[in-house]
Design a binder for these strands. Structure first.
Length: 228
DNA sequence: AACGGGAGCAACCGCTATCCG
DNA sequence: ACGGATAGCGGTTGCTCCCGT
């Protein structure tokens, strides 16, 4: 049996897909995701596009390690609200529910393991126990990938990993290219924005071929907005 | 140098809520 | 009031990278 519908793409997003999505959202807004997915020419579901935008591409997002203040706030709000990640995220500007959820899972799991070791101290070292006690009453400092749990290496490795994670961030580049003209907020600026990035949205063939059909289906309001 | 394990995170899945005709 | 479409949310999975051995 041959499937009539083309299979939707899944898995990690490429840089080009990101740029296509960013431009499409700039043009059409971040509400009707099925429409955005269709217009963008990405072979993704609206749901997938929304998630990518919300968790990674949204211009207001902070990327990188949680600050001690943020960590403290997460802990505080989680005790208050439990696993209401989106609610917690609203109190942390630039952070997504997914990010906070992931953070909580990894860091709290670690903390839970440490607690467990305190309760059954048969194999625990004294330094680890001391660290765990500190963690119970103070914010969690830089316990990221590669961090050790004892002594000053925590601080240095945190700084280094923060730096390296910032360096390797392709979206910064994309946004620096996109942001400036887009801030003007005009349709012209938006067009310039999209033509300035190194691809054509989404592909010449798509716009030539698909656009009449897409515009045909558009609502009056959207067409008016586009005309503006 | 090779390998296994763990951490971190992006993305998917399934369910619920909300909107709209 | 109802049903379909869409958005949002929380849980889970799977991939990649790093570190210790």
């Amino acid at each position: 049996m041959v499937t009539v519908r083309e299979e939707m793409r899944k898995g990690p997003w490429t840089e080009q897909e990101d740029m296509q999505l960013v431009c499409t959202v700039r043009l059409f807004g971040d509400r009707r995701w099925d429409f955005v997915a269709q217009v963008s020419g990405l072979n993704r579901t609206g749901k997938s596009c929304r998630l990518r935008w919300v968790n990674y591409l949204h211009p207001g997002l902070k990327h990188g390690r949680m600050s001690p203040q943020e960590e403290r706030l997460i802990i505080e709000l989680h005790t208050q609200w439990g696993n209401r990640w989106s609610r917690i995220a609203r109190r942390l500007p630039g952070r997504t529910d997914n990010e906070i959820k992931n953070y909580w899972r990894t860091h709290m799991r670690k903390k839970a393991q440490e607690r467990k070791m305190i309760i059954s101290p048969s194999s625990s070292s004294s330094s680890l126990t001391y660290q765990s006690c500190l963690l119970d009453t103070s914010p969690i400092f830089g316990m990221g990938r590669g961090d050790t749990h004892n002594g000053s290496s925590c601080v240095t490795s945190t700084l280094e990993s923060t730096q390296s994670s910032m360096d390797a961030y392709p979206m910064d580049q994309i946004w620096s290219e996109i942001e400036a003209p887009a801030l003007l907020g005009t349709a012209e600026a938006k067009e310039k924005t999209c033509s300035s990035v190194p691809f054509r949205l989404p592909s010449p063939a798509m716009w030539d071929y698909k656009c009449p059909e897409i515009f045909w289906k558009m609502e009056d309001e959207e067409i008016r907005m586009l005309a503006l």
